[in-house]
Amino acid sequence: MSTKLVIGLDGHSSGERALEFAKTLAGQIGACELLVVYVIEWSPYSFQTAEENAQRHKRREEEISTAQDRVVTPAIKKLTDGGLSATGKVRHGNVADTLNDIAKETGAAQIIVGRSTESGLSKRIFGSSTANLVMEASVPVTVVN
């Protein structure tokens, strides 16, 4: 049975480094399935106007296709070009929870993420996605600097 690795990307350079690391790691393990995940930060408890609600479905489709085109598809290409087996996924939700849920669903051996790029007040109050993931994850997490 092959090992499954979940790679969490955020569209920044740290995500790129996580991708490189996963590539190297997968090369060392051998039979590996890589799942590239991009999580769009979203909360079902945010407040929206009626008009935003009416257009939400359309916006969601646009967000997903943008993330797919700009981040996930190029990452998959990079991995498959290196002779690895890779698939991708774009989801909405809390970054840490969603990555953990996907890892559980797919039976992944570990999650690889870049160091978080959040800064400022929200990080001080709520912590970063990476720190939250490390604390909550049910599988081992590798944080790439």
Binding site: Q48, T49, N53
Partner: peptide
């Protein structure tokens, strides 16, 4: 959100529709 499919995340949630109507 107990009955919300995680695959539908990102769509308008029941909470959001309720909050909008309430406002």
């Amino acid at each position: 959100g107990d009955y919300s499919d995680p695959n539908d995340a990102g769509e308008v949630s029941h909470f959001q529709a309720l909050a909008t109507a309430l406002s």
